[in-house]
Design a protein around this nucleic acid. Structure first.
Length: 576
RNA sequence: GCGCCAGUAGCUCAAUGGACAGAGCAACUCCCUUCUAAGGAGUAGGUUGGAGGUUCGAUUCCUCUCUGGCGCGCCA
């Protein structure tokens, strides 16, 4: 039994004895060892109910502490202490820490795996870029968060389906087509260009179209006309549409590949539009939807149009059909949709409508959002035209890293240049990490310099720390080293700090998955990297008295960094 | 106007109601004959926007207020 569960078990019994009811007991991992490895505040929480029996929380804590000392298995616990104003702190024995070290090495990639979501089927929708529009840095944050979340859920043994919903019809497409038609460059001139360049052309065409739509009545009418033709499958429009759609999708596919995400299923607005309209229209009679000024609306937290007066399904109606089709494809326990938080109130209403139309699905569907990615020079919008595309960002990161490496870590310090594949891994890692290290819901200001910075709390720093562990391990002839379980190993404080951190990895990973908070894992990996680098600096590993132990420690740190980076969706090159 | 989210060091950000509010940049001191210096050790930097309240204990919860972002009927 894990220490946490043991403590919980005994505390529960003792407390039930005193107050006659169960209590919510929290046992927290503690980072700074001055307060032990685990801690509980139960005495403080329960004290108000026991004022007549104990004089102070401290007294209660002392009582619990004494009782616990008798019940708990001594082989793991070094000591239990009470600390003002009433915390109970637990210290693990060195032997328990060493045993855990052995487990990290034995379980390899499986160390830290949990079963909190065993047999759960989860559908995760993320990225959702729209053909004909740019794949911008907001999508980058979305896909990065989504992929990491998927991996964290899978690490709790959930069965995850990654899906992607792409808006290939609707007014934005009509705007883009208008832009294409009024562009001086023909579609034909782009045939030989790369997917990225074509996507960029379409993105610009969209920006032009959107601008014209707002500025000119004439353009507005033409765009509406294009939209009609598109729905009616007009042959000329359809031909351009098909080509443009494919170009966009090709480009997106390139991006998914670079970012390491593979989708199980792609959904398109074009495949759910008609069904969405039907669903809405069939629920006017029962009063769920209502006709108003020619349109069909739903009255929730605020009113939204589901079918336009032109009789087209809006995004809202399409989402209803999408939910239905998704549930037919995969019998999920939960369906999670990840979008930027500007859609929060939209989803509030749509999920309310879904609750009326398909109550069972609504119960299983949640919308999770993330904060906006701001640029230093104002809001990033595909309408204004000044868009930072995902591709540009990755390439720029790559360029700057190469430059930086050559000047500081590479040839300048006597090493070879990074190979192309490693460079790509580091660049993608840098960008992804900068999207993950902040708390998900807060808006972030994207600063190019900082995001690709190789110093401090960054992806490359952690990758570099991993590469260091591998570099040490590569130097020993036969990779066999014995893991010492003897108590004869005298542990240095830098080593103890690492051992203590290793113990908490499974807990951090579960918390990061449970709260969809990859930033917790980032912080943990950063701390571990710092602890290792400090140890590395102060102590010799190879050739030391405790060589076997130190190699084990190095190997375990490497393992955790590798697993942790994997869960963030970041690759860990063994050489940098 | 209504709703949602945020405001923490010079900058960018952390902190399930817990212990002295932590990192990283930037600034200043040190450390490569030693396993990757893209590294490490240290110094300095704070009335957590403001005012009340709840609590043993508040950056966190509640009320008011100021500032900013986002959303709000035929876009996605």
């Amino acid at each position: 039994m894990k220490l946490k569960d043991q403590v919980n078990f005994y505390l529960q019994k003792i407390i039930e004895n005193i107050i006659g009811e169960k209590a919510e007991i929290e046992i927290q991992p503690v980072q700074e060892s001055i307060h032990g490895d685990y801690s509980t505040n139960i005495a403080l929480v329960v004290y108000p109910k026991l004022k007549n029996k104990f004089e102070s929380p401290m007294e209660l804590a002392s009582y619990l502490c004494e009782k616990l000392g008798k019940s708990l298995q001594k082989e793991k616990i070094e000591k239990i202490e009470v600390s003002a104003p009433g915390f109970i702190n637990f210290w693990l024995k060195d032997t328990a820490l060493l045993k855990n070290l052995g487990e990290v090495i034995d379980y390899k990639d499986n160390y830290g795996k949990g079963e909190s979501l065993k047999n759960k089927k989860i559908m995760l929708e993320f990225a959702d870029p729209n053909p004909f529009k740019e794949f911008h840095i907001g999508h980058l944050r979305n896909i990065t968060l989504g992929e990491s979340y998927a991996r964290l859920l899978e690490f709790q043994v959930a069965n995850v389906w990654r899906v992607n919903y792409q808006g290939d019809v609707g007014m934005h497409v009509a705007k883009a087509l208008y832009g294409v038609l009024s562009s001086e460059f023909g579609v034909r001139s782009l045939e030989k260009k790369s997917a990225g360049e074509r996507a960029k052309f379409l993105g610009e065409a969209y920006a032009d179209g959107a601008k014209a739509y707002e500025e000119s009545e004439k353009a507005k009418k033409e765009i509406q006309e294009i939209n009609k033709k598109l729905y009616k499958k007009d042959s000329v429009i359809l031909a351009i549409w098909e080509k443009g759609r494919q170009w966009s999708l090709d480009h997106f596919e390139e991006m998914y590949g670079r970012l390491g995400t593979k989708y199980k299923r792609y959904y398109f607005e074009s495949e759910v539009a008609e069904k969405g309209r039907e669903i809405v229209l069939s629920h006017i009679k029962d009063g769920i939807f209502e006709r108003h000024a020619g349109a069909v609306v739903f009255r929730g937290a605020h009113t939204r149009v589901f079918v336009t007066s032109e009789n087209y399904a809006t995004y809202e109606a399409k989402d209803l059909a999408l939910a239905k089709i998704k549930s037919q494809d995969f019998q999920y326990d939960q369906s999670i949709i990840i979008t930027a938080n500007e859609q929060n109130s939209y989803f509030k209403v749509v999920l309310a409508a879904l609750g009326k139309v398909f109550p069972d699905l609504a119960l299983k569907t949640v919308h999770e959002s993330f904060g906006f990615v701001n640029l230093k020079d104002g809001k990033m919008s595909s309408r204004s035209g000044s868009v930072v595309t995902g591709e540009w960002l990755l390439d720029e990161a790559k360029r700057k890293i190469k430059e930086n490496f050559s000047a500081k870590g590479g040839p300048a310090s006597g090493r070879k240049d990074m190979d192309v594949k490693t460079l790509e891994k580091v660049a993608v890692g840098a960008v992804k990490y900068s999207m993950l290290k902040f708390s998900r819901k807060s808006d972030i200001t994207f600063s190019f310099e900082e995001s690709i910075s190789l110093e401090g709390n960054s992806g490359p720093y952690i990758q570099y720390s991993f590469a260091r562990t591998q570099s040490v391990l590569a130097r020993i002839q036969n990779s066999e080293f014995r893991i010492q379980n003897s108590e004869s190993v005298k542990l240095e404080k830098e080593e103890l700090l690492i051992l203590r951190l290793l113990v908490h990895f499974p807990e951090i990973v579960e918390e990061a998955g449970g709260n969809f908070a990859p930033n917790l894992l980032c912080n943990y990996l950063f701390e571990l990297s710092q602890a290792f680098n400090n140890f590395y600096q102060k102590h010799k590993i190879i050739g030391s008295e405790n060589e076997d132990f130190r190699l084990s420690l190095t190997s375990a740190v490497g393992q955790i960094l590798k697993t942790g980076l994997f869960l963030l969706g970041i690759e860990a090159p063994s050489k940098m």
